Amino acid sequence: RSVNIVAFGNERDGFSEDSQQPSLIWSYLGRSALISQIDSSLSASYVGNPVFTEYQAYVFGNVRLVVHDCPVWDIFDSDWYTSCRLIGGADIIVIKYSVNDKTSFQELKDSYVPMVKKALNHCSVPVIISAIGARKNGVPCTCPLCTSDRRSCVTTSEGVQLAKELGATYLELHTLNDFYIQKYFGGVLEYFMIQSLNQKSSEKMKKRRKTQRCHRVQPPQLEQPEKMPILKGEASHYNADLHNLLCCCQCADVAFYPEDLSRAVEAHKIILCSVSHLFMLLFGVKSPSDSQDASIVQLAKSLFVVEAGDPFPSSPHGAPPCVPPVRVVVKDSVFCSCLPDILHFIYSGTCWEQI
């Protein structure tokens, strides 16, 4: 994280006797408790004269602070590209002038403020205008000399009007002592530093979220389905169809007879095998060795006798052979009389769990 500050203007008036007075920027960097690791370097123009001083330091612990202090406004005349680059990369701009140098202020107002506004190009960069020094005509006097001096000072209203033109914050620093440097100027400058860092952090988060949204796989935009008709379930015909197989003797492949062979009751082996292991043993689906209950084998032998059919049944030429039903003789007369009812129960589809 970093904050870039650009300062323009000279806080010393042309007739000042103290030429060694430190600048506003250097005074702030040297006195502020928030600044550490200060380093400075001079940058020269193409004619060899120093154009600005670059300070590098750290503020708020780990935030890199870069300050370009340009005391000479000629940089806008000699190197427009550099001046625009400095303003374009600035997070905060400081414009400073001496209240006792009316000529320099007028030149600033007429020539260089329009250039600054053009370079800003509607950028929302905070600007601080610092009017530095105590006016020498502070004591009212009516003599002609004091009247002349009064005209050479920059009034507060002129400074405020200049700040309005730039949308800037106006400060008057009567002297560069600890109060004006640290609490007054430093307080405003540090406020704008914090605002700049917050804005950069917010823009960084927005950019990161936008990048994440771009790389995220977007779900397909599906149209809402039309309203489907309500389907009514049809009643099952399974039980009725199963019962019709028994009544109509369709596809019957087994016939039960009493011992006198007087009548036949037809059925289907697959249905009978599905309800009892006894019929599986009877029709050879399972062998006696597969049964774990020997009583079932004995019961099958005591109740039924399967008669061997013709292994080569006759059929018309070209037609598939017609396989007659397997004939099963029921030995037990009581069981034989109950067999039709037993078959009706089996073909009714009723499960033993439902009884």
Rank of each mutant, 00 (worst) to 15 (best):
L145I: 15
C143H: 03
I181D: 00
V160Q: 12
N137R: 08
L145P: 00
A134K: 15
L162C: 09
T142N: 14
G138Y: 13
C146Q: 10
T142R: 13
Y180H: 15
C141M: 06
L162T: 00
Y180C: 13
A134I: 07
T175N: 10
T142K: 10
G159M: 10
G167D: 06
L171V: 13
C153K: 01
K164V: 03
L145E: 12
R151K: 12
L166Q: 03
C146V: 05
L176D: 01
L176I: 07
P144R: 03
S148N: 11
D178G: 02
H174P: 01
R151H: 07
S148D: 12
F179V: 11
R150C: 13
L166Y: 04
T169K: 12
S148A: 11
T156F: 15
R150T: 09
E165G: 03
L171H: 08
V160W: 07
C143L: 01
N177H: 07
I181P: 00
R135G: 06
K136Q: 14
Y170Q: 09
I181H: 07
S157K: 10
N137K: 04
A134C: 11
D178Y: 12
C153T: 12
G167Q: 04
P140F: 13
S148F: 11
R151P: 01
Y170M: 13
N177E: 12
V139T: 10
S152E: 14
K136F: 01
E158K: 02
N137I: 06
V160A: 08
A168K: 03
I181R: 03
R150I: 13
S157R: 05
C153A: 07
C153G: 02
T147E: 14
A168C: 01
T169P: 01
L173D: 03
V160P: 00
D178I: 08
C143Q: 00
K164G: 00
V160D: 05
Q161C: 04
P140A: 13
T142A: 12
L171K: 13
Y180Q: 05
C143W: 02
K164A: 10
T175S: 11
L173I: 04
V139K: 10
L145S: 14
R135E: 06
P144D: 06
G159R: 05
R150L: 15
S157F: 10
R135Y: 02
L176S: 01
G159E: 07
A134N: 12
T169N: 11
P140D: 10
D178H: 15
T155I: 02
P140E: 14
E172T: 13
L145C: 09
R150A: 14
C146G: 09
D149N: 11
T175G: 07
E158S: 07
P140I: 09
